[in-house]
Design a binder for these strands. Sequence first.
DNA 1: CACTTGACCTGTCCGC
DNA 2: TGCGGACAGGTCAAGT
Length: 291
Amino acid sequence: MPELPEVETLRLGLSELLPGRTISTVDFNWPKSFPNSDGDVQRFLIGASVTKIRRRAKVLIIELTTNYSLVIHLKMTGQLVFSSSGKRFGAGHPSDSLVGKLPDKSTRVTLGFKDGSYLFFNDQRKFGWMRLLPTIEIMNLDFFKKVGPEPLSDDFTWQMFRDRLLRRPNSIVKAAILDQTVIAGIGNIYADESLWGAKIHPATRVSQLSPRDFKTLYKELVFVLKLAIEKGGSSDRNYVNAEGKKGSYLSFARVFRREGQPCPRCGTIIIKSRVAGRGTHTCPYCQRIAG
DNA sequence: CACTTGACCTGTCCGC
DNA sequence: TGCGGACAGGTCAAGT
């Protein structure tokens, strides 16, 4: 699921909801979702208050007053949903929200706060994880040492994008932009959407891209990521925001999940194939392999 | 080195 | 209806 725009939407939502709240209970409904969830972890969590929510790539970081942080990766089906009114308080919540229906059978971790509110970590497929680390150690994790630049940061330029891609000249471009060490936060949806926008076939070798291709793909990536954040992300199946509601990017999507429909640019029927081991959506007319 | 496959899991959808 | 297989937003490790 969650790619950069979904995790960023969650960060924005949780930033309005969590800071200042103090953890009072912790339930590990599925211990494997919280590696090393032993008694010590609970002791380190209870009594800690949330100070700030950060994001790096697709990882969310909830900073606590104790100089520890919760580090969370939602992988394919993870959800973080806040409820101000406790558990399963169905009445009074909008029907399009998960709040009020939680916890449920895919709830893996439940954090309770002193004021009676809760944060539920749900994850149908159990690939996601949450763990507690000293805040100063987070950036020493292998993942953070290797991860590439944030595509929406001010100092990320098209030349930087080109140079990082060119480190893998023999890779196909879709695999290269999905590689988190090349650039942070891109996943299958926004890879397909930006490649369509740049009129580049996903299986094109990086070495075959023109200077103009790099520049256009860079612009399209930044464009779709910003648009997706405005739309509250994409809810293909499971994704919901901190209030348990779906994002609306997919109603604006040009190719993703639109196989069999006309290309918005030329009218050719969008096809779905497999590229870089992933389901891939393209316009066979607009996106032809160069070289 | 780069690519593919399999693993980690549950659930849904499609064809027979 | 039931059953088997393919597939789903992500990352790892291992094999070719």
